[in-house]
Nucleic acid binder design. Sequence first.
DNA 1: TTGTTGCTTGACACTATGTAAAGTTGACAG
DNA 2: CTGTCAACTTTACATAGTGTCAAGCAACAA
Lengths: 198, 198
Amino acid sequence: MSSENLHTQTKILNAALNLLQQGPAAKTRMSDIAKAAGISRQAVYLHYPSRADLMIAAARHLDQVKEVDARLADSRAATSGAQRLRSFIDAWGHFMPEIWGLAKAFLAMRETDEAAAAAWDDRMQAVRHGCQAAVSALDQDDQLSSAVTVKQGTDLLWALLSIETWRRLTHDCGWSQAAYIDHITRLAEVALLNRGSL
Amino acid sequence: MSSENLHTQTKILNAALNLLQQGPAAKTRMSDIAKAAGISRQAVYLHYPSRADLMIAAARHLDQVKEVDARLADSRAATSGAQRLRSFIDAWGHFMPEIWGLAKAFLAMRETDEAAAAAWDDRMQAVRHGCQAAVSALDQDDQLSSAVTVKQGTDLLWALLSIETWRRLTHDCGWSQAAYIDHITRLAEVALLNRGSL
DNA sequence: TTGTTGCTTGACACTATGTAAAGTTGACAG
DNA sequence: CTGTCAACTTTACATAGTGTCAAGCAACAA
């Protein structure tokens, strides 16, 4: 069985991600993770010196498993800037539900743990780069609205695509995933494209 | 005098709000608040049974001090729906920096304390009502974009005006308060107004 | 005087993180 | 077969912050 042969570290990370995806992130304790991984609590500390370190490792692991970078990079294949914007929103939009469990944990840690906050911000910078690439492509095509600079457009798109905004619309407002993507796409287009391109 | 009692409670709440506005919310402990209020830590528990209760009381207190409801209600005076939208964004936009300290505390508690999360959600529902009123006014004026229903428009506006979005743009992206208000206003208009009204 | 109110002081239970150290087990090299 | 090493276990403990409990004290009122 391959699951028997999994390295202990992988078992820990999978257990952590599993628990985070299920329950409230803050209630996922080191002892819970250890139990779920089938090892002692102390053994977890042999691999990850702190809870924050474990979460950071889990984030990297999730990136690998879900192939984040590869899927986001797909949007680069688009021919026009407008097309690129749409496919980027689509890719990232479908991604968020899959990383939500972990995101919850980082959002909760953000105000308390500096290292965790830095690690999360770093991951979010990757998303920002995608936003910037899309907005730059619009600019190159002369399709960027004259109301915003590339930086402002990037910032706005990044804010629209934040996990927090996704959470509010899908969780608090009860939107479906499809509705979220549709409306955010429309909003991004209307905010970023010049009027002639619509 | 029964006002002595009130006096101590007020001292506690002011101390708490002060500390929250200054440092990282999660590092504001009960003992810090007690010290800042000039009383013992135990005395705080005589007035507020838990940290979450204190935060909730602090939120109510801040609402009173800042006269949130009254200031938000000003936007009702607007004659047109479009005007109402603008003045609501303006009012709430200027408000956020003033409640940011407390907001930080609630954002950090959100995943851990159910009572606190409920209290915060309740405050945010008040903002949502303001959003709904503005969007409904647009609808009444036949100025609401055909791309959204009143509910969808309310949700979108609410998301745009969330503290999290404000934080991202002003803190993470370095926008000025004025830039935030300008761009969010433009975004809201372009998202919610039908094209003829622009 | 006696009782009440609002606070103080000090002790303690609980939870979760993280540290430390000694013991167990199994694989593998010689 | 034996010794060693690494990974893991078990147990104990330090620490930080929340929240509880109880005794005491000062001011003030009936």
